[in-house]
Design a protein around this nucleic acid. Structure first.
Length: 113
DNA sequence: CGATTGACCGAAG
DNA sequence: CCTTCGGCCAATC
């Protein structure tokens, strides 16, 4: 299966469980692009138009809602995360490490879906 | 096609 | 933790 890079990103983001979040770099590393985490950001930019892709579950490595401005409302991203049982304070996910979902660890056994 | 930008990451000070 | 710099790839101008 030869999917575009964006499609791969979408596949990973779709598989993020509720109440879980991941980082652009984690997705990039899982996809093998490694340092090209910026492309993941670009993918999310295109992904926010797709309802199937919960882009609000993808934040930067510090758990900060850096992409919140790309959503319909400034508070939408935070509200979505809080609706899933997460706590967001000052544009940052509380206990981010606790809710962090690493695709490289979770999907490495069944990457093809 | 060259230059700039971007929802990033890591290292160094 | 903050700032600066380099790197990476794609989209946009």
């Amino acid at each position: 299966m030869e999917a575009n890079f964006f499609d791969r990103v979408y596949e990973v983001v779709r598989q993020i469980p509720e109440g879980k979040v991941t980082s652009y770099g984690a997705i990039a590393t899982y996809l093998g692009t490694g340092k090209s985490a910026r492309i993941v950001g670009w993918a999310m930019n295109a992904a926010h138009a797709l309802e199937d892709v919960p882009a609000h579950r993808v934040v930067n490595r510090l758990g900060m809602l850096t992409g919140k401005h790309h959503f319909s409302g400034i508070n939408l991203m935070q509200q979505l995360l809080e609706s899933e049982g997460l706590t967001v304070k000052n544009d940052e996910i509380v206990n981010f490490s606790k809710h962090f979902w690493n695709p490289t660890t979770e999907l490495k056994t069944h990457r093809d879906l």
